[in-house]
Write a protein that binds this DNA or RNA. Structure first.
Length: 271
DNA sequence: CAGCGCCCCTGCCCGC
DNA sequence: TGCGGGCAGGGGCGCT
């Protein structure tokens, strides 16, 4: 999936063509996503104008004339503009046809993605209301993270991937940020020092910003809203590099599982 | 409550 | 070449 940079890339790619356009129709080919799609989705969206778009964590939100549409790309989702009458492929589950004749297509092989309409502000919705701060916001800082971590025995990697602590730090960037900060992924969050948190916050902000700038990381077939791949993969220093030499000290990178997720680290550089 | 597994699902890669 | 097993960018949920 798209991690935060890929979601941001998608948002930037799909927004311009839909702003101030009305939804003419919603074509649903597969209702079974993370949650079954609302049977009345097409009816609820018909004629609604997209007034604004935004991102909260890995959720995309379309502000409509009435209510908001919450979208999530799960592990394998993507959205892109397609030409009208482009034949749908196997996993092209939903199309939105806009008043300017543009067609926005939601594709998601694994179907962990979500499409949820809400009549109130998306931030009040149960899916979004308990989310932690945005990683690139000023309120995500060393004091905040250090304070939240005290007495917590959870592995630091799971801790920073917890959306209640901070949103948008997925497996790839958690691995990268911990490497850059010199912290072992399995270390208890409560035992990570304040200095290490200072480095970690900086690393998270840096790696996410750089990935956004590069248009996200394309591992398999991620494409942004413009259909182009991301170019961050070449920047990855530890993710997917287990068994290879550390790019800093040449020690062999190790692989462990933390919270059922692959965690790669350098036994020399990270403590 | 914190924290850990399980699970949703398809595709792909690897070893036999 | 075929098949089973394991793994994949997420995260809600139920259980201890």
């Amino acid at each position: 999936m798209p991690e935060l940079p890929e979601v941001e890339t998608t948002l930037r790619g799909i927004s311009p063509l839909m702003l101030n356009q009305s939804i003419v129709d919603t074509v649903v080919r597969q209702r079974q996503l993370r949650w079954p799609l609302d049977k009345n989705l097409a009816q609820k969206l018909r004629g609604q104008k997209v007034l604004a778009t935004r991102r909260r964590g890995k959720y995309l939100v379309l502000q409509l004339t009435q209510g908001e549409l919450i979208l999530h790309l799960g592990m394998s989702g993507s959205m892109r503009w397609v030409e009208r009458d482009t034949p749908p492929q196997k996993h092209d589950h939903v199309d939105w046809i806009f008043s300017n004749q543009q067609v926005l297509r939601f594709t998601d092989p694994r179907r962990f993605g979500a499409i949820v309409w809400t009549d109130a502000a998306a931030e009040q919705h149960p899916l979004l209301k308990d989310l932690g701060p945005e990683p690139l916001a000023a309120e995500f800082n060393v004091e905040y993270l250090f304070q939240r971590s005290r007495k917590r025995k959870q592995a630091i990697k799971s801790f920073v991937m917890d959306n209640k602590i901070v949103v948008g730090v997925g497996n790839i960037y958690a691995n990268e940020a911990l490497f850059q900060a010199g912290i072992r992924p399995g270390k208890a969050a409560g035992r990570v020092t304040k200095l290490q948190y200072l480095l970690l916050v900086a690393a998270i902000k840096k790696v996410l910003s750089q990935a956004i700038k590069a248009g996200g990381t394309t591992l398999k077939d991620f494409v942004g809203g413009d259909g182009k791949p991301g170019y961050f993969k070449q920047e990855l220093q530890v993710y997917g590099r287990e068994g290879l030499p550390c790019l800093v000290c040449e020690a062999e990178l190790k692989l462990v599982r933390i919270g059922q997720r692959a965690s790669t680290y350098c036994p020399q550089c990270q403590s």
